[in-house]
């Protein structure tokens, strides 16, 4: 089947197997390996990307279902060699250790902030509930997200 969509602002059109998951399309077809896979039950959020601005676990969606959408992955966040403020905040506050959950976490956080520009700590914690991190205990992730809130 053919799928056409926009990924990180670039138009893409590819012939794909109907059963191909969006995450595999991004990783294996487009070579965008920043989006990680951490589970097989849609529980970990490592694969989180934005589809038309909404955060989506890309392992729960078929590539063909993304037809006509705009997909953003972690690779599209920094521009011209400059980290996005949210990425900068994660670095500043040591919001990552091994970094495996990080791309999904950052994408989930960016969609959270887009929806709730001024979240409380509790809202951040609930908002990131679908993204597991085994390294940080979330403390510094939450701190990073709160610090990235627009003034």
């Amino acid at each position: 089947m053919r799928v056409s969509l926009t990924v990180n602002g670039k138009d893409r059109a590819d012939e794909v197997e109907p059963r191909l998951l969006l995450v595999h399309y991004l990783r294996d077809v487009l070579g965008l390996t920043g989006t990680n896979i951490g589970c097989d039950t849609s529980s970990c959020g490592a694969c989180t990307v934005l589809v038309d601005g909404e955060s989506v676990k890309s392992c729960t969606m078929l590539a063909v279902q993304a037809e006509g959408t705009e997909v953003s992955t972690i690779e599209g966040l920094a521009s011209d060699g400059v980290l996005h403020p949210l990425q900068e905040a994660f670095r500043e506050h040591h919001g990552l250790q091994c970094g495996y959950c990080t791309p999904g976490m950052v994408m989930a956080a960016s969609s959270l902030l887009a929806e709730h520009p001024h979240p409380s700590e509790a809202e951040v914690r609930v908002g990131l509930e679908g993204n597991l991190c085994r390294c940080t205990g979330y403390h510094n992730i939450v701190k990073a997200v709160l610090s990235a809130v627009a003034p």
Binding site: T33, G34, T35, E75, Q87, F90, R91, L96
Partner: peptide, 14 residues
């Protein structure tokens, strides 16, 4: 951090 934050880092599966 920068390579991990941008998806540039390579894990085995990558």
């Amino acid at each position: 951090d920068p390579e991990l934050l941008t998806g540039e880092a390579r894990f085995v599966a990558d």
